[in-house]
Design a protein around this nucleic acid. Structure first.
Lengths: 334, 334
DNA sequence: TTGAAAGCGCTAACAC
DNA sequence: GTGTTAGCGCTTTCAA
C-alpha cells in the first residue's frame, strides 16, 4: 500500500499534525522536525491523497471543463488556450467530452461536481436541452459558459459575437459581388447555430439581398458540408456565395465543389467560421471569421475567478467582436 | 450548503446506514423505508459526495487519460473512441492535456493518481523523458499506454505497428514508380517518431532505394510540413515522393506544394499517417496509413480491465497492423 | 512550536 | 432488515 501521512509522521517521530504542516507548508515548523519529516516522506515515497485532502478542505484546486465534441477541432483549440491560462495558477483542468449528447453532458456535470471541482467551464451542447444539466449545478459552484450558452439561464458567458461574425462574412461576399447567398450551417440546436443563423438573416435583410436562396441546416461537420454542396448543385441555380456556419462545413463544401469541378472562388465564393488550423491549408485557403482563442480563454478564467472571489457578482456576458480573415476562397486579400 | 446523507436519513427517519443502502442499492431495504429515503433525498435535492465515497471505498469508477497534445486531431479521435468504449461500463473519463511537456505530463499523472482514478490511459510525450512520470505511478494503479510507449518500461501498450505502416507507404509509392523518397516527420522523441523513422529506413534498405534523400525531422504539425516542403524545394532535386510521419505534416507539405505549383501527384507523391478527418478532404485527397481507432480503443479498455482484474497479469503489448488508404495524392486507387 | 483530537461525508463491518 | 459505529487520510481547531 502507499504510505499515508501517519506513516510519515511515525517514521519522523512527530505527530501527524506536524507532518501535515511540513508537507503542506501551512505553518512554521522547526527546521529540525521539518527536515525529519521531509526525509521520512522521501524515504517512504509519500504522496498525499488528494481525495482525503479534498474531503477535509472542501475544495480541490481543480477546474472541470466539458465540451460538446472533442472531435470538432475548434474545441481542442479552446481547451489548449484555457490550459495555458490556468497554467501557473496551480489548478488542474479535467476535461470531459459530452459526445453531443445532453444526457451524457448532464452525467459529466454530475461527475465533476461530485468530485468537488472548484469551478466548471462548459460549452453547452444545446441552447435549451442543456438547461437541465446546468440547473443541476449547486449555486456554490462557479460556472462559466464559453462559446455557446443556454437560453434564459443565469450564468456567466464569454464568446464571440456570432451574429456580428456572420454579418462580416455576408457583407464581405456581398462586397465581392455576390448577390445570391446560401447559408449552410448546423441545426438550430446550439446557441451558436441559432445566433449565426440569426446573423445571416439580418445581414441579408440589411443588405436587401434576395432571401429565397437555401438555408441548409445539418451538423457542424464536413460530411454535412459535402452533402449540402451536393444539394446546392442539384437545386438548380448555384448561388454566388456559400456562407458556412463553421470551418468544418466549409471544408466539406470546398471538397465537394472541387470534386465536381465547381471553381472556388471564380464560380462561387465560400466562407467559414472559427479559423481552425486547417482553414489556411484548405484548397483554396478559406476566408473565415476568426475566433480569438487566447482572448476567449483569458476572459473565461477571469469570469471564473471573479465568481470564485465573490459568488454574488452579477452575471456577466462578454461578447468579443470577431474579425474576418480574408483568403483565396473569396478571392483573396485585395 | 448541499444536503448530506445524514440530512436525508434524518428527514426520512432512518439511520444513515439505511439511507446509504437505499441510495446505493447495496442491500435490500424494506420498500416503505426505501420510499421514505428516496422522497427525502428528492426533497433535499441530495447529491452524493463522490470525494467522501472515494475516500471510503478506495476507488472511484473513474479512468484518467493523458494525451500529449489535444490539438493534434489524432488524439481527440482516439479519445472519442475510448469514451464510446467506456460508455455503458459506468466509468467516467477525465482527460488531461500534457501540452507536449513532460513536466506537465508528470504533474497530470500525479493529479490523476492523487484523485484515485481506477486506471490510467496515457499516450506518453516522450519515449525516454516520460519514464519519470510513469515511474511515479504506484504499482496498484493499472496503466495502459496507447499509440506511443516509453522505452524499457514495463507497462501494457496498444498501438499500431508504426514500422509496418510506414513500410506500407514506402512500398506503395515505390510501386507507383517513386525511386527517390524523402521522409518528413517529427524529431525522434516519441516512440511513434522513432518507429516510423526506423520503418522508413528499413523499407528503403529493403527495396534497395537510394538512401541519400533527406530525412527532415521537426514536429508533427502542419507548419513543419510547410517548412520541410520549402526545404525540399530549395535543396535541389525534388524527390519522387515525400513520405510523411503524420497527416498534419502531409497536409502542410501539400499546402506548400500547391502554393508553389508543384503538382501532386504528377510531379511528386505524398503520403501521410493516421487518416485524420481532414485527410480525405485535403487537396489532393491524401493517401495515408489508417489507424483503426475503434480497435485501438477496444484493446486499450481490454488491457485496462485485464489488469484491473488481475494486477499480476504479465505485461501485454498489442501491435495492430494498420492499412493503407490510397487516395489521389499518390495517384488514386488504381 | 507542537500534539491530541475532531470531523469532512460516506460505506461497511458488526451487532441486534 | 435495520441501526451503531469505526474509520478511509487528511487538515485544523484547540490546548499545552
Amino acid at each position: 500500500m502507499t504510505a499515508t501521512i501517519r506513516d510519515v509522521a511515525q517514521r519522523a517521530g512527530v505527530s501527524v499534525a506536524t507532518a501535515s504542516r511540513v508537507l503542506t507548508g501551512s505553518r512554521k515548523v522547526s527546521p529540525i522536525l521539518a527536515e525529519r519529516v521531509n526525509e521520512a516522506a522521501a524515504a517512504l515515497d509519500y504522496r498525499h491523497n488528494a481525495v482525503a485532502r479534498a474531503l477535509r478542505r472542501g475544495h480541490t484546486n481543480t477546474v472541470g471543463m466539458i465540451v460538446p465534441e472533442i472531435g470538432n477541432p475548434f474545441f481542442p483549440a479552446i481547451v489548449e488556450a484555457v490550459e495555458r491560462r490556468l497554467q501557473g495558477t496551480g489548478r488542474d483542468l479535467f476535461l470531459c467530452d459530452a459526445q453531443q449528447d445532453v444526457a451524457i453532458e448532464r452525467h459529466r456535470v454530475h461527475a465533476l461536481i461530485a468530485r468537488q471541482v472548484d469551478g466548471l467551464i462548459i460549452v453547452p451542447v444545446s441552447a435549451t436541452a442543456s438547461r437541465a444539466a446546468l440547473a443541476d449545478i449547486p449555486g456554490s459552484v462557479p460556472v462559466v459558459q464559453v462559446d455557446r450558452f443556454v437560453e434564459e439561464f443565469a450564468a456567466d458567458w464569454v464568446g464571440v459575437d456570432d451574429e456580428l461574425g456572420i454579418g462580416l462574412a455576408v457583407e464581405h461576399v456581398a462586397s465581392r459581388g455576390a448577390h445570391t447567398i446560401a447559408f449552410v450551417s448546423a441545426a438550430l440546436e446550439s446557441s451558436s447555430a441559432l445566433q449565426r443563423h440569426e446573423g445571416f438573416e439580418r445581414a441579408i435583410a440589411r443588405l436587401g439581398l434576395p432571401s429565397d436562396f437555401p438555408r441548409l441546416l445539418g451538423t457542424y461537420r464536413a460530411e454535412w458540408g459535402r452533402a449540402a454542396a451536393i444539394e446546392l448543385l442539384h437545386s438548380g441555380a448555384l448561388p454566388d456565395a456559400v456562407v458556412c456556419g463553421n470551418d468544418e462545413i466549409a471544408v466539406g463544401v470546398l471538397g465537394e465543389f472541387r470534386r465536381r469541378q465547381v471553381h472556388v472562388p471564380d464560380r462561387v465564393l465560400v466562407t467559414g467560421f472559427d479559423d481552425i488550423r486547417f482553414a489556411a491549408l484548405a484548397d483554396p485557403p478559406l476566408t473565415t471569421v476568426r475566433q480569438p482563442h487566447e482572448q476567449l480563454a483569458a476572459e473565461c478564467i477571469r469570469l471564473l475567478d471573479a465568481r470564485l472571489a465573490d459568488p454574488q457578482t452579477p452575471v456577466q456576458r462578454t461578447a468579443i467582436a470577431p474579425t474576418l480573415v480574408i483568403r483565396e476562397s473569396t478571392g483573396g486579400a485585395s
